[in-house]
Simulated scan of single mutants.
Amino acid sequence: MNAPLGVILAGGLSRRMGGGDKGLLELGGRPILGHVIDRLGPQTAGLALNANGDAGRFGEWGLPVVADTIEGFAGPLAGVLAGLDWAAGQGADCIVTAAADTPFFPRDLVARLCAAASEQTVPLVLAATPDPERGTIRHPTFGLWPVALRDDLRAALQGGLRKVVLWTDAHGGRLARFDDGPPDPFFNVNTPEDLAMARALMESAT
């Protein structure tokens, strides 16, 4: 499989953070989004950012910004669809998504997602981690998504579907298991307390 394009999902409403762009919060002297770009960029054949509103606030990175085409903040699947539509225009077969508020995800994320898709006719894989109490936790903002299913996804969203795993399960989606913690490689910044923890993790790693 050729290196997929990457799409960073930044279209959420950030309610628990009080609104705004979580990816623009400062971590280690620069925005969280900068860390995400540094990790995902080298793993992919090109990057775009999925975000709504004024694209100019992301101008310093020089990335294409693609907005949701499904109205009403329909969740991460709407961002995936926007990314797939962008990738189709680039002639790509698939994308890998990452969340803009998750600065510590694996630097071999793409390779491991692609490996899990081995022999799949239509590559569709979500990242997952083990949890001693909850079993397997799926991370629906981190996945490998086929351009070939974008119209099916569009129809599902227009029909009201919002839960990622219902759609991936319906299309034979697989899991790529990441036993990389602690800390959780998919730890994301949802609250001010999470941001303080991310800063502590960043300091301990330097």
Rank of each mutant, 00 (worst) to 15 (best):
N50L: 12
N50G: 15
N50S: 15
A51W: 10
A51E: 10
A51Y: 07
G53C: 14
G53M: 12
D54P: 15
D54C: 15
D54Q: 13
A55R: 15
A55L: 12
A55S: 15
G56T: 14
G56W: 10
G56P: 14
G56Y: 11
F58S: 02
F58V: 11
F58G: 08
F58R: 10
F58P: 08
G59E: 14
E60A: 14
E60W: 10
E60C: 14
W61H: 11
W61Y: 15
G62D: 07
L63M: 03
L63F: 01
L63S: 09
L63D: 03
V65S: 05
V65D: 10
V66F: 10
V66C: 07
V66S: 07
V66D: 06
A67W: 03
A67C: 04
D68I: 01
T69Y: 12
T69C: 13
T69R: 12
I70A: 05
E71K: 13
E71C: 08
E71H: 09
E71G: 03
G72Y: 11
G72V: 05
G72T: 13
G72K: 05
F73K: 11
F73W: 14
A74M: 02
A74Y: 01
A74D: 11
G75Q: 11
P76Y: 04
P76H: 12
L77Q: 04
A78K: 03
A78T: 02
A78L: 11
A78S: 15
G79R: 06
V80L: 03
V80R: 05
L81M: 06
L81W: 00
L81E: 04
L84V: 04
L84A: 02
L84P: 03
W86M: 01
A87H: 05
A87L: 08
A88R: 01
G89I: 01
G89P: 09
Q90A: 05
G91L: 10
G91I: 04
A92E: 08
A92M: 11
D93T: 00
D93R: 03
